[in-house]
């Protein structure tokens, strides 16, 4: 077992983990951060996307021990209580989700994309979120959601 200390959604979490434990499994089963989900085993679907030190990563493709000393943000740390992050608001307003399983990853990827490119074109959005698969929406309204989020966050049109 290895000792790790990771700041997850603002809380310093200390834990003993098996080296083989994936970051996503530690978040879900160790910390109860079940908002972040697993959709595949080949790093394709992106459902498990979180931010590690401010950058999007697939938490199924990282060991929990590798997050030692890092700052992790999950969908559950994006806003507190009844607050809504603008990206969350935009996805609701634009019907950018149906079953909601890809949504945590899709939202976190959007946060990451907009932090680097506050005013992306449709093509940049589609390229920017292609590491996240959705089976319900056909992406049409997800793209609209990202555009609207950019608008809400002050990107110029």
């Amino acid at each position: 077992m290895q000792h790790i200390s990771v700041t997850v959604d603002g809380t310093v979490c200390e834990s003993e983990v098996e080296p083989r434990t994936l970051l996503v499994h530690w978040l879900r089963e160790g910390l109860g951060k079940v908002g972040t989900v697993v959709g595949c085993d080949t790093s394709n679907c992106g459902a498990c996307t979180i931010l590690v030190d401010g950058q999007s990563v697939k938490s199924c493709s990282m060991l929990a021990v590798q997050a030692d000393g890092c700052k992790v943000t999950t969908i559950q740390g994006l806003s507190t209580g009844d607050d809504w992050h603008p990206v969350q608001t935009a996805f609701k307003e634009c019907h950018g989700l149906q079953c909601g399983y890809c949504t945590p990853g899709m939202v976190m990827s959007t946060v990451d994309l907009l932090s680097e490119n506050p005013n992306p074109t449709e093509e940049e959005i589609r390229e920017g979120i292609h590491g996240n698969l959705c089976r319900c929406t056909g992406y049409h309204n997800i793209v609209k959601s990202v555009q609207y989020a950019a608008e809400l966050m002050g990107g110029t049109k």
């Binding site: 790093s43 992106g46 996307t49 590690v52 950058q55 999007s56 990563v57 697939k58 493709s61 990282m62 990827s109 990451d112 994309l113 920017g128 979120i129 292609h130 590491g131 996240n132």
Partner: peptide, 9 residues
């Protein structure tokens, strides 16, 4: 290469 998340790691 792959996607944004994978390029980050």
């Amino acid at each position: 290469v792959a996607d944004r998340q994978i390029r980050h790691r």
